[in-house]
Structure formats: structure tokens, C-alpha cells
Design a protein around this nucleic acid. Structure first.
Lengths: 114, 114
DNA sequence: CAGTATCCCTACTGATACTG
DNA sequence: CAGTATCAGTAGGGATACTG
């Protein structure tokens, strides 16, 4: 065996996990995913409040990347004051669902350690 | 609702995913996990060859962190030349298993996009 | 309200050389 | 073989102020 690469996989991509890791790699992305999963439509300020510690810049750039990756949808209503609603796309919902076993593992570990 | 924090969860830990993300956060960790899963015992040089591009320093530090996190076991045989074998702990094996749906999501996405 | 625009900073990663 | 030690580079993240 030469490397772990799957045949036909893009260079540096081995088993699908790294593809997924690139998409959820940002520090807050899984939490954004989670927040959007709990409630189908969230506004920018809502997300900011839900993620204590995140800055506007980081939230905005994460959302833009997730939108570009096709896991988050964005709808802007032409109102005053402005209103923008973020949601999971179908792919984003499946991504979030695929994270559930990982979350279960983390919960168990957190509970074990207090 | 104030935040996404679970009751009783350590500060900044929300749904278990972030706990898990901390453990697999290093750039190569999921791939190390994968390599150790494919073959129960791996030597240092073997892992280095399996992960083209990783440097010795990064591989060593990742392995030490994963050992400290209790997901990788290390056995050093007192021989000449030295031999060290790395393996998944039970917890590491469960972690790896919990990554499988995520890997499936990534594989599907990679296949869709070529 | 929903973002940009700047500036900064350090933690992670990497290259290279060396050692028990 | 299985690692350290040292030195740098950089990208991601953060603080703050400002805008349509």
C-alpha cells in the first residue's frame, strides 16, 4: 500500500473525512450548524447571541463560506430595518445529522470527565 | 433561551460536538485515526509514509496529544533498533466509528463534485 | 439590523538539522 | 528507527470602529 488515498480521490483526500473536515473546519462552524438545526431560520443577530464569544467578522465570514459550500442558505428580505434569515440547506441538514454520532461521543466523554 | 449551552456542560461546550472537535482538531488527526483503524498496530515511520506531507514534528506532537486524550495507545519495545507501536484505544476506536457517517457525507460530496 | 473595514496577533503548521 | 530542537511563515481568528 502506498498511501491512504482512495483511487480517484482528489489529491490529499483520503477517506472522505478530510473532505468533511474542510467544510466544518472553521472554529465555530459546527456550532452554527447546530444552531440552525435547532431552529430552522435564524437571523444574524440571533446567531451572534447564541454563540457567545464569536465576533461579527468571524460569524459573517463563516456564514459566507458555509453558503459557498452549499450547506447554509441565506435569504435577505428587502425591509427596513434589514432582515436576513439563515437556514440549513438539505446538504447542510444531512451534514448536521452525520455529526450526531460524533456529538454523542463528545457528550459521553464530557459526562465521564465532569 | 440564553445560549446553546447544555445545562452542566463546561463553559463553551454546547452539544458535545465541540468536545469532539477539540480532540480531532489537529490537521492530520482524523487521518491518523483512520490509518490506525485500518491496521491495528502502526509504527512511527509507517504512519509517516501513510500520510504524505506530514512532518515528523507534527506527527509526533499529534500522536502525543492523542495519547494524552486517551484515544491512542503507545507501546515502546526496548529493542535495537527502537520499535514503537501505536494503536487505537477503545475510546479511539469508538471515536473513529462515530466519524463514519461524516466520512460517508464527505465521500458522497467528493463523488458529486468529481 | 446586518453587516464591512482595519489592524493585530499567536497558535498551528512546516522545513531542516540533529540525537539516543 | 523514532524521535527532539530550532527557526520561521502564515492563515485563521479576534478587537474595535464604522456604514448602508
Amino acid at each position: 500500500m502506498a498511501t491512504l488515498n482512495r483511487p480517484g480521490a482528489p489529491d490529499g483526500h483520503i477517506c472522505g473525512i478530510d473532505t468533511a473536515m474542510e467544510v466544518i473546519g472553521g472554529k465555530w462552524k459546527v456550532l452554527i450548524l447546530w444552531a440552525l438545526h435547532e431552529h430552522p431560520y435564524r437571523r444574524f443577530g440571533e446567531l451572534r447571541r447564541l454563540l457567545p464569544g464569536i465576533t461579527e467578522k468571524v460569524l459573517a465570514s463563516h456564514l459566507r463560506e458555509m453558503e459557498a459550500d452549499g450547506i447554509v442558505g441565506r435569504v435577505s428580505y428587502d425591509e427596513v430595518p434589514p432582515r436576513v434569515e439563515y437556514s440549513l440547506t438539505e446538504d447542510g441538514a444531512r451534514l448536521n445529522a452525520s455529526l450526531e454520532p460524533l456529538a454523542a461521543w463528545g457528550r459521553e466523554r464530557a459526562d465521564r470527565q465532569g
